[in-house]
């Protein structure tokens, strides 16, 4: 899957949990999920689960701990989907 495609799919997963819509409209790969988008920590677990289901992957604890920014999340998903090839 292309990185751009992952970013777009991830944005649709994140959107329902965003509490700062203005920040979401200006989302970039450097956007911090908790600090910038004001996603709460329980919803970060929801995002991880939604991403697992959408991309048919399993995100382990070690990877989940690193998912702080959009770039982190895309990198982890890219790596896990590449592993399937």
């Amino acid at each position: 899957m292309e990185r751009k495609e992952i970013v777009e799919k991830l944005k649709t997963i994140i959107e329902p949990y965003v509490q700062d819509q203005e920040a979401f409209e200006n989302v970039s790969e450097d956007t911090d999920l908790l600090n910038d988008l004001k996603v709460n920590s329980a919803n970060l677990v929801d995002i991880i689960i939604d991403a697992e289901m959408a991309f048919d992957i399993e995100i382990d604890d070690e990877s989940a701990e690193k998912m702080l920014t959009v770039k982190d999340a895309v990198g982890i998903i890219e790596e896990l989907t590449d592993d399937r090839k």
Partner: peptide, 16 residues
């Protein structure tokens, strides 16, 4: 708290 599928809650429980 949003309504989610049983599968979602099972995964949530396992992860947390």
């Amino acid at each position: 708290i949003r309504e989610r599928s049983q599968e979602h809650w099972d995964r949530f429980r396992e992860k947390t």
